[in-house]
Simulated scan of single mutants.
Amino acid sequence: MSVFLQQLPALMGVMVGALGSYVVVVRGDRMRFGREQAARWEERRLAVYADYAQSVKKTVTVTYRVAADAGVDPHPDPLTLEQAQPLLADATTRRDPAGEALIMLGSPAVVEKARAWVVTALEMERFVREHREDREAWQALLERQRAGREGYYAAVREDLGLPPGHSARWPLPAVDPVPPQR
């Protein structure tokens, strides 16, 4: 028997081993790439979700302050509607592109909860722009806004596979029944 034929089984073993190693490395690289890509998209979605929440919350906070000026909210830093106009415009300008990013990258459940939350925030803005002083209506809007925010955060956590979080419902001081004198 020739030397080549004697070495053929060993040569075949080396070739099979090299092919197996190649397949394992390529498959491992693909899996790692997939995990890294999924992690990058998850980080991006979290950033979009947080940016959108901050933009909606800016509108909400400004409306709290204007409502405090009208005597229907206990916010400690009241603001007249005239002073609030540029802040509300800025909040809208920031919220619109954040909303577009949310629509592009967000899950349908998160986008729907975001829509419900922002609709309530816009109703709060309309309330203060109309100079309404109905405390019960304001309290109802506050409850809807808080429930909308809580629903949005719950949908975000579910989409990102995070554990449930805090509801962010803290007891607030009662509103003084006497409106401030102007």
Score class of each variant (00 low, 15 high):
residue 150 E to L: 14
residue 52 Y to E: 09
residue 46 L to V: 09
residue 13 G to S: 14
residue 182 R to C: 11
residue 10 A to W: 13
residue 16 V to K: 11
residue 71 G to E: 05
residue 30 R to A: 04
residue 148 G to M: 03
residue 8 L to M: 01
residue 68 A to H: 09
residue 55 S to H: 04
residue 144 R to H: 03
residue 3 V to P: 00
residue 94 R to W: 08
residue 29 D to I: 13
residue 147 A to E: 10
residue 30 R to S: 11
residue 44 R to C: 06
residue 72 V to N: 00
residue 41 W to K: 07
residue 38 A to D: 06
residue 126 R to W: 03
residue 70 A to L: 09
residue 78 P to G: 08
residue 23 V to R: 05
residue 98 A to Q: 13
residue 129 R to S: 04
residue 9 P to S: 04
residue 65 R to S: 04
residue 31 M to N: 11
residue 101 A to P: 03
residue 9 P to H: 02
residue 91 A to G: 07
residue 131 H to Q: 03
residue 45 R to S: 12
residue 131 H to V: 08
residue 159 D to Y: 06
residue 180 P to H: 02
residue 91 A to Q: 10
residue 94 R to H: 15
residue 18 A to D: 06
residue 179 P to G: 07
residue 61 T to K: 11
residue 90 D to M: 10
residue 145 Q to F: 04
residue 61 T to V: 00
residue 103 I to E: 15
residue 22 Y to K: 05
residue 6 Q to D: 12
residue 71 G to N: 06
residue 179 P to V: 12
residue 95 R to D: 02
residue 164 P to A: 06
residue 122 L to T: 12
residue 167 S to Y: 00
residue 85 Q to I: 06
residue 24 V to R: 12
residue 150 E to P: 01
residue 28 G to T: 12
residue 2 S to V: 09
residue 39 A to Y: 06
residue 93 T to R: 11
residue 32 R to L: 11
residue 68 A to E: 09
residue 105 L to P: 06
residue 79 L to Y: 07
residue 66 V to R: 13
residue 148 G to N: 11
residue 175 V to L: 08
residue 163 P to M: 09
residue 140 A to F: 10
residue 74 P to Q: 04
residue 6 Q to M: 14
residue 116 A to R: 09
residue 81 L to Q: 01
residue 131 H to N: 13
residue 132 R to M: 13
residue 6 Q to A: 15
residue 19 L to E: 03
residue 80 T to W: 07
residue 179 P to R: 11
residue 66 V to C: 03
residue 58 K to N: 07
residue 127 F to Y: 02
residue 120 T to S: 06
residue 1 M to H: 13
residue 177 P to A: 10
residue 60 V to L: 14
residue 104 M to L: 13
residue 140 A to L: 01
residue 101 A to G: 12
residue 86 P to G: 03
residue 132 R to P: 02
residue 161 G to T: 08
residue 120 T to L: 10
residue 126 R to D: 01
residue 91 A to D: 03
residue 144 R to P: 02
